[in-house]
Design a protein around this nucleic acid. Structure first.
Lengths: 216, 216
DNA sequence: AATTCAAGTCAACACCTGTACACTTAATTT
DNA sequence: AAATTAAGTGTACAGGTGTTGACTTGAATT
């Protein structure tokens, strides 16, 4: 009967203050300052809760930050997995993938803003966590490319280099996108078109690449 | 006689507190936190001066930030101008240019760290100022490329796109470089080599590019 | 029905923050 | 030599900060 919520560590039923705190922090990041500049007190205030209540859910602000980071990447990884398993990369699907990705960015603006700001300005712990996630994406992309017959003759190191090139650019374009107003659809379309051209250019370059000269 | 320092607004002779304040802020950015998280008081403390002395040189912290930004880009522009006027871009000089650039980054680590952190986490004013500078570099690179016979048939929009691709990547690699310890020369060499390969790949892609289909 | 306990409140603390104001001092101008 | 002025100091205040400890409360466990 009342056993819906199982065993120990029952979910917070009515008191979803934890979520409120995370949402408040995220909102402040969007419209005020980088996460590292937020104070515990203003987060709790925005969450409509007394400062000391914070400690019932997180030991300190940096713990909140790491939770937020985890949340951001968990959903992003999920989306990436879907895009990836659709088809092997080729020029045709490029446009589609980019549209899906940037649409996702658009719908998760707050999380991306949070990550983007912390990537450069966060604590070392935070920065390393983010860079590790990005490296994971790069690795997965490199693995996908390895399966592409077109690239049989390219060695692992160069595949990594190519994937890095793509990821670097998408990251930069994402940040460019985040700088645009939410309503600026023209600007967003422009970024998308630039992205497509840049990736196509990379695609051409990849086609010409020869992994000779070994790795001196 | 005593007229060495001219007319009004004489240079601060002994009291080079202004420079001390800027140096202190820069040092704190390197080893503590993004500029936006620094307090006026800790900057003055590190500069060995009483808090209220700050106001003799800057109206507030954000003014110090803008001055720091100006200083950062003034010397960077100077270096870029030298590199640029050497020769038209081609594959041979690529390695050399990259070495010069990354060497410069290495020798101005504090300034680059400052800019890198403010690019994402600074005030809107700060972010816009930085993005404007970067856009200027992109434009200049596009102009250089336009002079390249190889690229006669590429229209202006696409040149801009290509320059953007290069700048995006160099920016990302610069940040990667800044994450490395100052003593990690192996890592730095690796970044340099990756950079060279990535730009060469872009170079190949540029060679294949055709600006047809106009801009739909 | 009694008990336990997670999740909330309130009051208080020691500290750090930006800035105003009045004062000194040494150098430059007159 | 006298006057001015840029650049430094010390004190003070009102406000924000993280964190403590003791208290309340209502729902889940027993």
């Amino acid at each position: 009967m009342t056993k819906e919520t199982t065993s120990r560590s029952r979910k917070p039923k009515r008191g979803q203050t934890r979520e409120a705190l995370m949402a408040a922090a995220l909102e402040l990041v969007v419209k005020k300052a980088p996460f590292s500049a937020l104070s515990l007190r203003e987060v709790t205030k925005k969450a409509g809760v007394v400062p000391t209540a914070f400690y019932r859910h997180f030991p300190d602000m940096s713990a909140l930050g790491l939770t937020l980071l985890d949340e951001s990447f968990r959903t992003l990884r999920h989306m990436m997995r879907q895009v990836r398993q659709e088809e092997l990369p080729n020029e045709r699907m490029l446009r589609g993938s980019l549209e899906v990705y940037f649409n996702y960015v658009r719908n998760n603006r707050a999380h991306f803003l949070f990550v983007s700001k912390e990537l450069a300005g966060g604590t070392p712990t935070m920065r390393n966590a983010i860079r590790r996630e990005i490296r994971m994406f790069t690795n997965e992309l490199a693995m996908d490319m390895a399966r592409f017959p077109f690239l049989n003759h390219v060695n692992a190191e160069d595949l990594q280099m190519m994937a890095g090139l793509v990821v670097n650019n998408v990251t930069a374009l994402t940040q460019e996108m985040l700088e645009l107003e939410e309503i600026d659809e023209t600007g967003q379309r422009e970024v998308l078109m630039t992205a497509e051209k840049q990736l196509r250019l990379i695609y051409f370059g990849v086609g010409m690449w020869r992994s000779d000269k070994s790795s001196s």
